[in-house]
């Protein structure tokens, strides 16, 4: 039976392709593009303010509200700002860490370090953020207890807390691509640069950075987009501060079409980001 199928498949390459790709394409179209399309369409619907029912007629009102209300503009700017800062923090922390792992550590500790970087990814997101809540808690949190004697205090809940929390959450996604990029970077290029008279900082800027740029871009796509869409971290340690995700979440039960309208913003920003990245040529060498 299996033999027969296999023989038929061998004779008909098209059938083979269909068998191979039907499931993934169905998944992509229905679950992925379908959801996105629904979101986009719903963004143009409105809601009956009395009954709360969705009225399925095309209408630009939501977009008009979103663009004219300064509050939304502020949320967008704040969210993009946070996502950028998180990306910068992750990059600055990840490069030396990845460099140590790829170029300095012995092969044995290299494997241990990779495992250590991956370990937090197995823990629940919520657990990690609540842990940070305990740490950041003003007055009796771990940070205050640690830093208090030194004259510092916890930043408390708010923007800095969100940046700390998100940077902590997404750091592995930045370290791993940079680590992979540095692994591929031949050591003798670093030797050659030093040999030609370049100090370490010069070698880093002129040789290492340009050659791992695609890895930085890969990492930033994770840290930036994951931060852009986050709302749980903001809810738990953000204090009164809101991110785009919070606005979507709040509107979700009251005004679904408007929530969809807000949700188109991060999608658009990500599309613009990818387009910019594409222009640098970094995607081609990923």
């Amino acid at each position: 039976m299996l033999q027969e199928i296999s023989n038929t498949m061998h004779k008909k390459p098209k059938l083979r392709l269909v068998a191979l790709l039907t499931a993934p394409i169905l998944w992509l179209v229905v679950a992925y593009l379908g959801a996105l399309a629904t979101l986009l369409v719903a963004a143009f619907f409105t809601i009956d303010s009395f009954t709360g029912n969705v009225i399925q007629t095309f209408n630009l009102g939501n977009f008009h509200d979103m663009f004219t209300d300064a509050a939304y503009k502020n949320v967008v700017l704040r969210t993009v700002g946070i996502a950028l800062l998180v990306t910068v923090v992750c990059t600055v922390l990840a490069i030396p860490m990845a460099f140590y792992m790829a170029k300095i550590a012995k092969p044995r500790s290299q494997k241990i370090l990779v495992a250590l970087i991956l370990t937090p990814l197995w823990a629940s997101y919520l657990v990690k953020i609540y842990a940070w809540r305990t740490m950041l808690e003003p007055g009796n949190g771990v940070l205050d207890w640690l830093l208090g004697p030194l004259g510092f205090s916890s930043p408390g809940f708010g923007g800095p807390a969100i940046i700390i929390g998100l940077s902590y959450l997404w750091l592995p996604y930045m370290i791993l691509p940079i680590y992979a990029g540095l692994e591929r970077l031949p050591n003798n290029l670093l030797d050659a640069s030093g040999d030609l008279g370049a100090h370490n900082w010069h070698t880093f800027r002129r040789i290492v950075l340009p050659l791992i740029f695609p890895s930085l871009v890969a990492g930033s796509m994770f840290t930036f987009s994951l931060s852009l869409g986050d709302y749980i971290t903001a809810t738990i340690i953000g204090g009164k501060l809101q991110m785009l995700g919070n606005v979507v979440y709040q509107n979700f039960s009251i005004n679904l079409p408007f929530a969809a309208t807000i949700a188109t913003i991060p999608v658009t920003i990500m599309a613009i980001y990818l387009w910019m990245v594409r222009r640098t040529g970094a995607l081609a060498s990923l």
Binding site: P186, D191, S193, G194, D195, G197, I207, P210, L211
Partner: peptide
């Protein structure tokens, strides 16, 4: 002394040219 403070230059086995 580090390599960058020595008046010597090296031709590497696999050339080590900067690919970018």
């Amino acid at each position: 002394l580090p390599p960058y403070e020595r008046d010597v230059n090296t031709v590497f086995q696999d050339y080590a040219l900067f690919p970018h």
